[in-house]
Structures are given as C-alpha cells and as structure tokens.
Nucleic acid binder design. Structure first.
Lengths: 338, 338
DNA sequence: GTGAAAGCGCTAACAC
DNA sequence: GTGTTAGCGCTTTCAC
C-alpha cells in the first residue's frame, strides 16, 4: 500500500496519468465528472500524490520556517500562534527552529533551508556582531525573509516590531511621574535591535525630565536566571535604584525574586515595569506593570507580509519597518505611594 | 544563481555528476581529495543539492511533525523545546501544527502529512470521540507516531505521559490532610486521556479517606476563559467547595480570578492545587501549589522513541506507555490554616 | 575511484 | 477534455 502513484490510479480508471495529475491540481482543463471519479478512487485506495516529486517539478515547498532565539516566554509562543494561523489558512506548512541565541546556530539553520526546503522565512534575529553573511544565501536563492521583534538593521527587508522606543519612553515617564529619581534600565544586549531601541526611549524620557543618565543604573546582563539574578542583586545593593524598567520579562521576574530575598518592597521601595506578554500579571504579587506587545498580531502581520512577497515575484528589497502599538498596563508594581 | 545543479558543479570540476553526488552523501566510494575539492567548490559558488530531488529519490524527508491542541501554556512550549532539541541533534527538521482542540483539524493535518512530507509524528491528541480513522493513513504509509501527554487509547503505539493518576491522588490527599472536606475537581474533558486519569486519582484519594464522590463537585467545563469563569463562579457559589484540584492550569487561573472577585480567600476559605508547568508560581498571590509535569523531559523522551522507531524498521505496534514522574510543589494556595 | 544510464513520481507543454 | 512526452535534479546500480 505504500507506493501508489498516479500511474496506478490512472490504470485503475482507464485514464492517463496527466488527467489524474490534473485532478489533484486546480486545473480547469478537466471534466468535473472525471475529476470527481479520480478523487473518489484516490480516497478509496488512500492515495495522495507524492510530495517530493511534485515539489521537484514545481520548485515549491509550500513551507515556511520560523526561526527564533528562544522558547522561554509568552511573546514567542503568541507570535508563533499568529504565524501558524496565517500559514495554515494559506495551506502552507510551518517549520520551527530555535537558535538558543547563537548566531552560529542561526547560520547553520539558514544554510539547511537554502536548498528548496522553504519558500520563505520569518525570523527574530539571534545575534549581534556584523557578520550576517549567512543571509546572503537567501538572497541568492530568492527566499524572502521577514523579521519580527528583533532584526539586523543592515539587512534590507520588512521588519515588524512594536513601538518600543515610544513605549519605553512612556514607561520611564510613568516611573518618573510616580516619584522615581533613580531609574535603572535592565537589558540583555544594549547594542542591538530591541535592547538598543528600548534604551533610546528610556534615555529620551530621562532627558526630558532633566535626569542625567547614570551608567551605573544601566545593567547589561544575561539570559540565564542564575547569572542575571546576581547581577541584579548587586545593582540593587550598590546603585540603589528606586525604579526599574526591564527590557524583557525574564529580568523583571528575577528582579521580583531578588527584591523579595533582599527585603526590598515593591512598589514602596522600588517601582517596576517591564516589557512582557505574560497574561497573568494581575495575579502576581504585586500585580506587575507591563508594556504588552501585540505578539499574536505581530506574528500575523509578519506572516502576511511574507505571503505577499511570496505571491508577487517582487522582492522585499527596501528596508521597511512596520510598527504595531503596544499597550501600557499600569498595575501595583509601579504604583505611586501617597 | 538560482538553479545550480550537481551537473554544473561537475562541469566546473571536470567530473561526472555521480561523483559530485557521492561527495554530498556519506559515500566511502570516493577519493577524500576529490570530495574535498567538490565541497570547496560548492561552498564557493553557494551550491547545495536540491532537496526535493534527493527526497524523491530516497523517499525520506528528514522531517517530523509536532501536532498539539493548543499553544496556550508553558507545558507545550516546554515540550516542544525538548522535542526540537532532539530533532535538531539528529539533523532532522520539525514541522509544527496546532489543532485548536478540533479533531477535524487534526485529521486534515494528518492527511496532509501522509504523502511523504514527514518521516514520523509526535502528537498530543486533540479529540474525544471514537473516530480515529485518520490515523490509519499513517499506518498505511508506515509513518510512526508517538503520543505525549494526551493519547487515544485505541491506537497501539508509544505514549509518553506523566504519572498523573498518582500525582492526582497525592494532590487530593494533600488537600484532605490540610483540612478540606469538599474538594472539587475541575476538568475540560473528564472522559478521555488526562482528564479521565487525573479524575481517577482524585476519586481514589476520596475513597481512601471515605469521602463520597459528589457529582456536584466535579465541574466539566471548557477552555475559553470567558466561559469557564462563569462555570467556576457558579460552582463556588452553589457547591461551596473548600478545596479545588484543577486538572489544567487555565482552570486554576480562572479560579484565582473568580475567588478574588467573589471575596473568597485562598487558602483560608478555599485551597487550590493544579497541574501546571508555570515557572513563576512562587510569585503569584497566593503562591500556587502545583503538580509540575516534566514537560521538557517528556518532549525529549517522546522524540527519542520516535527516532528509535525511525532508525530500525520495527514498527511501534504494541501499546506502550512511558510514565515520567511529576513534582508536587506545595505552596501557599493549599496551605493549612492553623 | 569514477562514469554512464536508468528512473524516483510528478507536471506542463504540446498535440489531438 | 484527454493523452503523449520530455524532463525537474538527484541517487544508485552497474560497468570499467
């Protein structure tokens, strides 16, 4: 039963294989009745056309890839959900890859996709550095790529992101208005993409309120909880901030844990706000103020752009940034104590 | 640059295409020097062998699929992370599909995979009902499937899951020992797979302590927060439980919100424990007692079994259940008030 | 160790 | 509306 072909099916029905082939494509060059007979028989004997043969013929895979740096937070699962929705509605398939924030992994994944495996790529960039040459392979093979959330700004393509600079500005301003004088900014990578943009908004707010930027209050730390926890503990002890803007959720979570351990009360002694897509911030103790990015929407929009460029042979050559609004949700963790 | 073939490469090097082909397989029928020359040239001109042609020839896709009912919770993202890790280490690719708990979606996905697209499938079952005939297609096509977390027990294959009956028993016993007399069980689907098994453990514990099973205390509700919230509200008002075992995280979250709204204090008036993989239960208010399933591990183990069956032509014909231990983490939400 | 040639299963001209 | 036929790019016998 394993290797049926259109020839077997054709033989069973006294037709030629081209007719059978037409039945499976959306060819209009076929008698609807014939088509129905063919499809019925296919159903009966459990046949469906071999994918690889078809793909080889038409040089299409009906598949896209999602490449993300990690799987740790709600942002990416929501974004993937949005992407998967669009992909499925288009009858496409979705490959998923996780780089663990390693550019080498990203490069090797990209290489493994440049041989026809996918028709397009959605990626949240993993790396820093300037060597993005692995992406040239995609251009050579006419595989469009759309970035979401994290990009490389030397690559000319579509980039879908939140209004991070503005949101960061507003979040910082909110802390200032609630009485904070020494606001720290926690970040994983202050030099690229979201880490940088969010810092820009933070600095702009400080400037507006004539608060000098204090490098001691900018904590450049890492992903691993065990490590960033200690960095944050030092920050709280040495720099004694009274407010914190965390550029990613994980750093806010670590902050809450450290504050608890150190006996620092949130929001009384320390006000906290962070970028996060967590959907239970209201149940935390204290309830957590967040900049909530439209993750699901972002996935949908990014996927939609990708499919547009797949539909028309026009390439995504110009740098184009699509900005989606985040929501600022102020809760207890940043509340003014009166 | 787009359509290079091994023939082009062969021409450039004065070789035949068969030799070039051998360089890309792990053939030992080739001079290492020749192979090196070929690979170097390939690198230089950015060539890699067309995947579809190769797949067609060897009838392999080096791809597996993950099919899950939803993307909403940490359990699945952790499990996928575990799967992806194994898959990548084997040089395989991972397709991902979400069914939204609809068996029809599951069936159509399975159909779209039965034509060579994947070599194997990892699935957490979506459905109830008894029509699992869509899985026959897989058998016909020799595509192995391994279940994780949720299965169909009429399908003979490997199933990797947590020790849910025992964990459920222990969680219920814990509530009883902490003084609960009227323990409710919240579930999405009490008749199948995890919903049923977890109820079994709950009932066994009640029986052990001579507490009669009260149907009024078993709430069979749905996934959508807007709907289950109202069901839970009614339960709390009418049946007045003093303890709750939630079979899935989402129902515990809804319970916390309803309790807050209704002025029911947790754990004073109502003790709560649930199955969950959330990693910030310590930061909730109150901190949440959970049965934490080894999601990451479960993904890894399930994937490992799948690859075993891919390696040897032996089929996964016998029903085989692999049980992994969960951790019971008792926190404030179920604490005895003395 | 390398080359020639057949063919994996399908699609798309082109003819009728 | 249907059949014939020439490949898509690769792998793999089989010769040498």
């Amino acid at each position: 039963m394993s290797q049926l072909t259109i020839i077997d099916l054709a033989a069973k029905l006294g037709l030629s294989k081209s007719t059978v082939s037409r039945a499976f494509r959306n060819s209009n060059d076929i008698n609807p009745e014939t088509k129905a007979r063919i499809l019925a028989m296919a159903e009966e004997i459990g046949f469906s056309p071999n994918l690889h043969a078809s793909n080889l013929r038409v040089s299409k895979s009906q598949t896209i890839a999602i490449i993300i740096p990690e799987f740790g937070n709600k942002f990416f699962s929501q974004a993937i959900k949005g992407i998967e929705l669009v992909t499925r509605s288009k009858g496409y398939h979705t490959l998923i890859y996780v780089t663990d924030h390693q550019v080498q992994n990203e490069a090797s994944i990209i290489r493994s996709l440049s041989n026809g495996r996918v028709d397009g790529i959605l990626m949240s960039a993993s790396g820093e550095g300037n060597d993005h040459s692995h992406l040239n392979l995609l251009k050579d093979n006419n595989i469009p790529i759309v970035f979401f959330d994290r990009n490389y700004d030397d690559i000319n393509t579509v980039y879908v992101t939140g209004n991070d600079e503005e949101a960061s500005f507003l979040a910082t301003e909110h802390l200032i208005k609630n009485g904070c004088k020494r606001i720290a900014y926690l970040v994983i990578n202050p030099n690229i993409s979201i880490g940088k943009v969010r810092m820009d908004g933070y600095k702009r707010a400080l400037k507006k309120y004539k608060i000098p930027v204090d490098d001691q209050l900018v904590l450049d730390t890492v992903n691993q909880a065990e490590l960033n926890t200690e960095d944050i503990r030092e920050l709280l002890r040495d720099a004694k901030p009274d407010g914190i803007l965390a550029s990613v959720e994980r750093l806010a979570i670590s902050t809450l844990r450290v504050a608890k351990e150190e006996g620092i009360a949130v929001p009384e002694d320390l006000k906290l706000i962070c970028f996060s897509c967590l959907d239970i911030t209201d149940l935390l103790n204290p309830s957590l103020s967040v900049v909530k990015q439209p993750a699901f929407e972002m996935g949908k929009v990014a996927a939609t752009y990708l499919f547009e460029s797949l539909a028309k042979p026009v390439k995504l050559e110009e740098q184009q940034t699509i900005i989606l609004d985040s929501s600022l949700i102020y809760q207890d963790s940043s509340k003014k104590i009166s």
